[in-house]
Write a protein that binds this DNA or RNA. Structure first.
Lengths: 210, 210
DNA sequence: TTTTATTGATTGAACATTCAATAAAAAAAT
DNA sequence: ATTTTTTTATTGAATGTTCAATCAATAAAA
C-alpha cells in the first residue's frame, strides 16, 4: 500500500476519523484504536503522523476552527457591499453554515470547548477564535453605534450565536440551522432597531449603498 | 473517627470535592484519588457511598442542577406580583445567581454539559433541566404574545442565557455576572419592545398590578 | 535494491474497584 | 465507672483492566 505522498491524505483521514469517533462515543472514549479503526488504519500510524494522540486532537480542533473561519470569510467576501448590517448577517450565516452545523462537528466542537478549559494548547486556539468573532462583530457595530454600545452588542450577539450552537449540539435532533439563523437575525434586527430609536439622526455610517 | 450518621456529611464533602477537582484539572483528570484527596478521605470511600465514580458524578450533576433550580425558584417566590416581565427577570437573575456563577461551578457545569451528550444518565438530567428553563420562559411569554412568537422568544432567551454562561466559563477571569445579567435583561427589554410595536393594542396580559 | 509507509504485539503507566484489616465510637455488661 | 462487645466507618494494598506509545518486522512502491 505504501505510496509516496501519503502524509496529507492520512492526516485528513485521521482528522475526519477523530470527529467521527468523538461523535460516536465522546472525547473521553475516543481511543487511538477506535479512531484508527474509523480511518481503516492501525493505531501506530497516529503517533507517526501527529506525534501522539494530543497532536491529533489539536490538529482536529485547528481544522474545525479553520473551517468555521473559512465559512464566515467566504460569505463576507461574496458581499458586494460594505453595509455593516450585511456583514453582520454574513457572520451569522457563516457561523451556522451547513458544514459547521453537522451533528458530528457540533459535538466535537463542544467537546473541545470543555476540554480547552484545562489544556493550554487548546485554550490558545479557543481564545484566538473567540476574539476573532468578537472583534469582527464589534468592528461592524462600531459603524452603527458608540464604542461601549458596540461592545455590548458584540458580546450579546456572540453569546446568542454560541448559545444557539450549544443548545443545538445537545438536542438529539441536532441543530435546526434554519431556525437558529432566523433567531439570530431577528436578534440583530432588534439590536439595530433599538439603536435607531436611541439615535434618530444617524451619525457616521459608511456608504450604505443602494 | 467513625461516628454514626456520617453518610450525609461525606456525601456533601465528596460532591464538593468533585467540583473542586473538576475545576482544578477538568473532568478527564478528576480521578477518584484526586477527589478523595480534596475531601481528605481515602479513595475507597467513594464506592462505599456512591457505588462508584459514576454514581458520584451523577450526584454532583444533580446537586448543581438542584442549586440552579432553587436559585430561580427562590427569586420567583420572593415576587409579590404575577407580572410576566418580573418573572422573566427573576428567571434571568436566578440563572446568574452568585452561587451558580462561581468559577468552579461554571466549569463543572460545562464539563457535564459536554459529557451528557454521550452518557444517557447525565443526558436525562440535562434534558429535564433544559425543558424546565424553556417551559418556564415560554409560559411567561405566552402572557405577552401569541404562541409561536412566545416559543421563539423562549428559545432565543434560553440561548442567550446559556451563551453568556458558556462564554463566562471560558474566560480566565470567570463570568462577569453583573454584565451578563445586564445584557440578558437588555435583551428581554428588546424582545418586549419589539412585541409592543407589533401589537399596539395589548390583548390578554394578566393583571399588571401597580 | 533502496526508500517509504504501515503494522500490531509488547511495554509500562494509570486507573477504578474490591476487600480484608483496622480503628473508633456506641452499646452492653460488669 | 470500667471493661467488653458490637456496630459502623474507613483505610490502602492488591487486582485486573484499559490505554497510549514504541519499535522491530514487513510490505509495497520507487
Amino acid at each position: 500500500m505504501p505510496k509516496v505522498g501519503m502524509e496529507p491524505i492520512r492526516r485528513q483521514q485521521l482528522i475526519k476519523a477523530t470527529v467521527a469517533a468523538i461523535d460516536e462515543v465522546g472525547l473521553a472514549d475516543a481511543t487511538v484504536m477506535r479512531i484508527a479503526r474509523h480511518a481503516g488504519v492501525s493505531a501506530g500510524i497516529i503517533s507517526h503522523y501527529f506525534g501522539g494522540k494530543d497532536g491529533l486532537l489539536e490538529a482536529t480542533m485547528r481544522q474545525i476552527l479553520h473551517d468555521l473561519g473559512a465559512a464566515v470569510s467566504a460569505r463576507r467576501k461574496a458581499l458586494s457591499t460594505t453595509s455593516p448590517r450585511a456583514h453582520l448577517e454574513a457572520i451569522i450565516d457563516g457561523n451556522f453554515d451547513r458544514s459547521q452545523v453537522t451533528g458530528p462537528v457540533a459535538k466535537t466542537w463542544l467537546a473541545f470547548w470543555a476540554s480547552s478549559m484545562h489544556q493550554p494548547q487548546l485554550q490558545r486556539l479557543q481564545n484566538v477564535n473567540d476574539r476573532r468573532l468578537y472583534a469582527n462583530l464589534c468592528h461592524q457595530f462600531r459603524f452603527l453605534m458608540p464604542r461601549e454600545q458596540a461592545r455590548d452588542a458584540a458580546r450579546a450577539l456572540a453569546a446568542m450565536i454560541d448559545g444557539l450552537w450549544l443548545r443545538g449540539a445537545l438536542t438529539s435532533e441536532g441543530l435546526d440551522s434554519d431556525r437558529a439563523r432566523r433567531l439570530a437575525r431577528e436578534y440583530l434586527d432588534q439590536l439595530l432597531q433599538a439603536q435607531d430609536a436611541r439615535t434618530p439622526h444617524p451619525s457616521h455610517e459608511p456608504q450604505p449603498e443602494s
